[in-house]
Simulated scan of single mutants.
Amino acid sequence: MTPSSDAAREWALLEEKIDPLARAVLAAVEPWDAYRTAMDAAGALTTDELITLPHGGGIYRAWSELSDFFEWEGTPISDAHAALREAAHDWLKRPKEPSDAFIEGWIDGVDDARRFFTRRDGDWWNEPGKPSRTE
């Protein structure tokens, strides 16, 4: 089965715009350098060419959440950095051909990290150890 033109265009743009940023996250030694790169990834996804594609909004949200972990008072920076590095590493495992299942699985992985940190550390709206109002 050949991918749709939107899926093929999305895949090419992700390779061009997001893959280099994921590699930069992994290359960053300092956590805050990795954070800034994640912010750049989210910013790259706000361009008209990416945000309107099939997974643009979900990928944008996921990269934004990865940077949010750094800003939550209860989450240790080392844990936020580790989650970001894991997501970048997983991102770079993208298959050569477009795969909805891969993208949706990657987003689910980021969502799992968000749920874990929210339960353990709280976030802007939820106290640690309390049921989340955002789930």
Results as ranks from 00 to 15, higher is better:
residue 115 R to H: 09
residue 61 R to G: 12
residue 90 D to W: 01
residue 113 A to D: 13
residue 102 F to Y: 11
residue 70 F to L: 06
residue 114 R to D: 15
residue 80 A to F: 12
residue 98 P to W: 08
residue 82 A to P: 04
residue 109 G to H: 13
residue 65 E to I: 03
residue 110 V to Y: 14
residue 84 L to P: 02
residue 66 L to E: 06
residue 106 W to C: 02
residue 76 P to F: 09
residue 81 H to R: 08
residue 97 E to F: 04
residue 96 K to R: 10
residue 65 E to S: 12
residue 116 F to P: 11
residue 98 P to F: 11
residue 62 A to E: 02
residue 61 R to C: 12
residue 98 P to A: 00
residue 107 I to N: 10
residue 60 Y to Q: 04
residue 76 P to R: 07
residue 65 E to A: 12
residue 64 S to N: 04
residue 78 S to V: 15
residue 117 F to S: 05
residue 116 F to D: 13
residue 87 A to H: 03
residue 82 A to E: 12
residue 65 E to V: 02
residue 85 R to I: 11
residue 76 P to A: 06
residue 86 E to W: 07
residue 106 W to A: 01
residue 105 G to V: 10
residue 82 A to W: 00
residue 117 F to W: 00
residue 63 W to D: 02
residue 75 T to V: 10
residue 75 T to D: 01
residue 103 I to Q: 00
residue 97 E to G: 05
residue 61 R to I: 08
residue 109 G to A: 14
residue 107 I to A: 11
residue 79 D to W: 10
residue 105 G to H: 08
residue 107 I to P: 14
residue 113 A to V: 12
residue 71 E to N: 13
residue 62 A to F: 04
residue 77 I to G: 15
residue 73 E to T: 01
residue 82 A to H: 05
residue 120 R to C: 06
residue 82 A to N: 04
residue 98 P to D: 08
residue 74 G to S: 05
residue 85 R to L: 12
residue 106 W to V: 11
residue 118 T to G: 12
residue 71 E to Y: 12
residue 107 I to T: 06
residue 110 V to D: 14
residue 85 R to G: 02
residue 63 W to E: 08
residue 99 S to Y: 05
residue 88 A to M: 12
residue 103 I to P: 09
residue 65 E to W: 11
residue 68 D to E: 09
residue 102 F to P: 07
residue 114 R to T: 14
residue 87 A to S: 13
residue 67 S to L: 13
residue 118 T to A: 15
residue 117 F to H: 09
residue 62 A to C: 02
residue 86 E to H: 01
residue 119 R to E: 12
residue 116 F to G: 09
residue 100 D to M: 06
residue 66 L to C: 08
residue 106 W to S: 01
residue 72 W to N: 07
residue 108 D to L: 07
residue 92 L to M: 02
residue 80 A to Y: 00
residue 98 P to R: 01
residue 102 F to N: 02
residue 84 L to R: 02
residue 67 S to K: 03
residue 104 E to Q: 12
residue 88 A to T: 11
residue 79 D to R: 10
residue 76 P to M: 13
residue 70 F to V: 02
residue 102 F to I: 00
residue 70 F to G: 01
residue 91 W to D: 01
residue 108 D to N: 15
residue 69 F to M: 02
residue 92 L to V: 05
residue 111 D to E: 06
residue 98 P to Q: 03
residue 60 Y to P: 03
residue 104 E to R: 06
residue 96 K to F: 15
residue 110 V to Q: 07
residue 80 A to Q: 02
residue 113 A to Y: 00
residue 118 T to K: 06
residue 78 S to L: 13
residue 101 A to M: 11
residue 108 D to H: 10
residue 68 D to Q: 13
residue 113 A to G: 09
residue 74 G to H: 07
residue 65 E to G: 04
residue 75 T to G: 03
residue 114 R to Q: 11
residue 116 F to H: 15
residue 80 A to H: 11
residue 60 Y to C: 08
residue 120 R to P: 05
residue 72 W to K: 01
residue 95 P to V: 03
residue 111 D to I: 05
residue 111 D to M: 01
residue 114 R to P: 08
residue 115 R to N: 13
residue 104 E to H: 12
residue 105 G to D: 03
residue 95 P to I: 09
residue 84 L to T: 11
residue 119 R to H: 09
residue 77 I to H: 14
residue 114 R to M: 15
residue 68 D to Y: 04
residue 88 A to V: 06
residue 94 R to C: 09
residue 103 I to W: 01
residue 114 R to L: 10
residue 88 A to I: 08
residue 64 S to T: 07
residue 96 K to E: 04
residue 109 G to R: 02
